[in-house]
Design a protein around this nucleic acid. Sequence first.
DNA 1: ACTTTTACTTGCATATTGCAAGCAAATTTA
DNA 2: TAAATTTGCTTGCAATATGCAAGTAAAAGT
Lengths: 139, 139
Amino acid sequence: MLVKDKRSNCPVSCALDIWGDKWSLLIVRDLMLFDKKTYGDFLKSTERIATNILASRLQSLEEHGIITKREHPESKAKVLYMITQKGIELLPMVIETMLWADKYYPASDEIKGILIEIARNKEAFIESKYRELQRTALT
Amino acid sequence: MLVKDKRSNCPVSCALDIWGDKWSLLIVRDLMLFDKKTYGDFLKSTERIATNILASRLQSLEEHGIITKREHPESKAKVLYMITQKGIELLPMVIETMLWADKYYPASDEIKGILIEIARNKEAFIESKYRELQRTALT
DNA sequence: ACTTTTACTTGCATATTGCAAGCAAATTTA
DNA sequence: TAAATTTGCTTGCAATATGCAAGTAAAAGT
């Protein structure tokens, strides 16, 4: 899973070098939309990521500056994973992905709520979520 | 590369089941932005996809309704690959991906031109490209 | 007819994924 | 305070996917 060097200078290619796999964006999604913060949180997601894959993806995302690790305020046994500014900026791309897939594949009820909000006013949703993520990222 | 069934009903997960790999979106990019249409065109892209991987991705994209094959008007030896409506609708997501990556990784000159256009008026660019793709998809 | 182009397929070595089990430090429970 | 549990991983190994090189058949060009 190590990308030695970029395949090209195309931004699409550069982006895929970082998150072009089946799992990385699910971790980003969990951080951005489902308030998940720990290793155990990510493991519990419905897609059932394998523990070794999760560890490797977390490391890769950290190396690429999308997430950072912090001390968990409640326990030294836990690790707090946080999304970075660079990661927060993936929000518009994630939203467009959700809107695309929603058109062709039935979403779960949990997500339908979010999609309704987005449908109501996409820009406002992004703006509000963006600020919310930045706020929690600073504390 | 066969996704037997969806991992979950999350739209992000569904989308990744289809194009969550290092290559599929590069083919979509080539079709949408670089006017590539044939097997040979895709092989020539700077990222240098292996020929067997290209064949498997084209098949997968076709199975998922993102692209279709047509007779090439100039030659029976060639195959014309076309993007479908479902594929065209990936445009906003691809654009957001480009904008994200452009912020952190230097783009090639060929792409800088497109990015400048997008920066000038994103909505207008998407709208115009969207219609252009629909037009060529109909002929 | 012969060569080249085109769109693939095949074989095989290497890399990645996924499953299950293991493990040490921290925390909770008895 | 000793034992059990939680937490965040690592390890081993089988299955799958990737990447490279070579091959192939139909069509096109010379």
